[in-house]
């Protein structure tokens, strides 16, 4: 039997909001250590890696490893049925054909169950090599969302240029061009407002706005986002999910034709 309970269903709602624009379906791997998802968008340009540790759940039981293929749009619809303060429990039997989402109101006067059919999916786990990144940036997630949104008006892609002066995001297109520079700011009043730039080597990379604007949907999960970059390798954009895990997005760069 598999059973995982989260007092705050809002966390799971936010996780779904953070992946539903990139993925139509995904395999949820459940084991003793927790729930993991690794899935690419249909164009194989970006990859979502989600990890929810078992010790982060309020109750967690997984008697045997399960691979459950789920429709992300259906799961998203179901989670929209949860009240903001509801507790959520995911439950499946061994060799399941479906998974049940159980929502319970805070004072336990309402209990709703939604059963979702599982789907058969081909596994295509990619091997992601260990990389030491030449530039790692931590910044407020709201700021990153804003930059992606604002610069998307000017072009289809954003160039990230990191130097010892800071990081510069730029975009250009038919209407003109725009750039936004950020310098390190560790004196911010609040930790979540800090900008931390750890640069070993300067770099310049270009990424498609379309995907970046999907990644920033994870902003409500965490006040800070971490961007890890090296020349000519995919960007890693990471958001922590409270004390329970993280969501990492990988994005293949655009390179000179």
């Amino acid at each position: 039997m598999f059973e995982a309970r989260l007092v705050q269903s809002a966390i799971l709602k936010k996780v779904l909001d953070a992946v539903k624009d990139l993925l139509t379906e995904a395999t949820f791997e459940c084991s003793d250590s927790g729930i993991q998802v690794q899935a690419m968008d249909s164009a194989h340009v970006s990859l979502v890696s989600l990890n929810l540790r078992s010790d982060g759940f309020d109750k967690y039981r997984c008697d045997r490893n399960l691979s459950m293929g789920m429709s992300i749009s259906c799961m998203s619809k179901i989670l929209r049925c949860a009240g903001a303060e509801d507790t959520v429990t995911l439950r499946a039997w061994d060799n399941p054909e479906s998974i049940t989402f159980i929502f319970e109101s805070p004072n336990k006067d309402k209990l709703a169950e939604y059963e979702m059919k599982l789907i058969n999916m081909d596994q295509e786990h990619l091997g992601i090599p260990e990389t030491s990144y030449s530039c790692v940036i931590k910044m407020p997630s709201g700021e990153f969302s804003r930059i992606c949104r604002d610069l998307s008006q000017f072009g289809e892609s954003i160039t990230f240029a990191c130097s010892k002066e800071g990081i510069k995001f730029s975009a250009s297109g038919d209407y003109g061009s725009a750039n936004i520079k950020l310098v390190q700011n560790t004196d911010a009043d609040k930790e979540e407002e800090a900008v931390v730039i750890d640069m070993q080597e300067p770099l310049k990379l270009t990424f498609a706005c379309r995907y970046l604007n999907c990644f920033v949907k994870a902003g409500p999960l965490c006040n800070q986002v971490q961007l890890s970059m090296s020349d000519d390798v995919p960007l890693v954009c990471e958001y922590k999910i409270g004390d329970i895990g993280h969501i990492k997005y990988y994005l293949a760069p655009k390179i000179d034709d």
Partner: peptide, 14 residues
């Protein structure tokens, strides 16, 4: 003009 790469170029297929 820049061309979009895919992750297959960087990551190992199963």
């Amino acid at each position: 003009k820049k061309k979009q790469t895919t992750l297959m170029k960087f990551f190992k297929a199963p």
